[in-house]
């Protein structure tokens, strides 16, 4: 506990060894899908990394499992659902939209909307008086100033 090395940083140091050539699918189209899906799934042991960029064993297993599902003919959503069924919402880097995550998705935009409406209402209420048109004297001075500029 007292050793204040940036221990966890180590985990981040290793993603260079993420997807190995041997893991890749033969079909480039499928492999592309696999990479795309892997990027949306969170590695369960290495915090804030997708399984695509993690070198953890379990991430590798999940990468292989994802490719297995793709080979078996699952579409992208089915693959993600398959992983989610086993590991829960936690693995989804994009949190699902439901009652408990509604504030996450709609909180800030909602506040923005409220602020804009409040400001619009206030702007209607307090209207700055129209400035009086320039007197001939002022117009002359303005013209002179602009000439000097």
């Amino acid at each position: 506990m007292k050793r204040l090395l940036l221990l966890l940083l180590l985990l981040l140091a290793l993603p260079a060894f993420a997807v190995e050539p041997s893991e890749q699918l033969k079909d480039p189209q499928q492999e592309k899908r696999a990479r795309e899906i892997s990027r949306q799934l969170r590695c369960v042991v290495c915090q804030n990394e997708s399984i695509d960029s993690s070198n953890a064993d379990i991430a590798r297993d999940l990468r292989l499992a994802v490719r297995e599902r793709i080979r078996a003919g699952d579409d992208d959503e089915a693959v993600i659902a398959w992983v989610r069924q086993r590991y829960g919402d936690f693995v989804l880097l994009q949190p699902p939209l439901n009652a408990s995550t509604a504030p996450l998705w709609f909180g800030p935009p909602g506040l923005l909307l409220i602020a804009i409406i409040a400001l619009a209402l206030r702007a209607r209420r307090v209207r700055p008086a129209e400035p009086a048109p320039l007197t001939p004297e002022e117009a002359r001075r303005l013209a002179a100033l602009e000439r000097d500029l």
């Binding site: 369960v44 042991v45 379990i58 297993d61 999940l62 499992a65 086993r86 590991y87 829960g88």
Partner: peptide, 12 residues
């Protein structure tokens, strides 16, 4: 292969 581990949502 660790396949059953994944079925259980094993993290380690």
């Amino acid at each position: 292969a660790g396949a059953t581990g994944i079925e259980f949502g094993l993290t380690g």
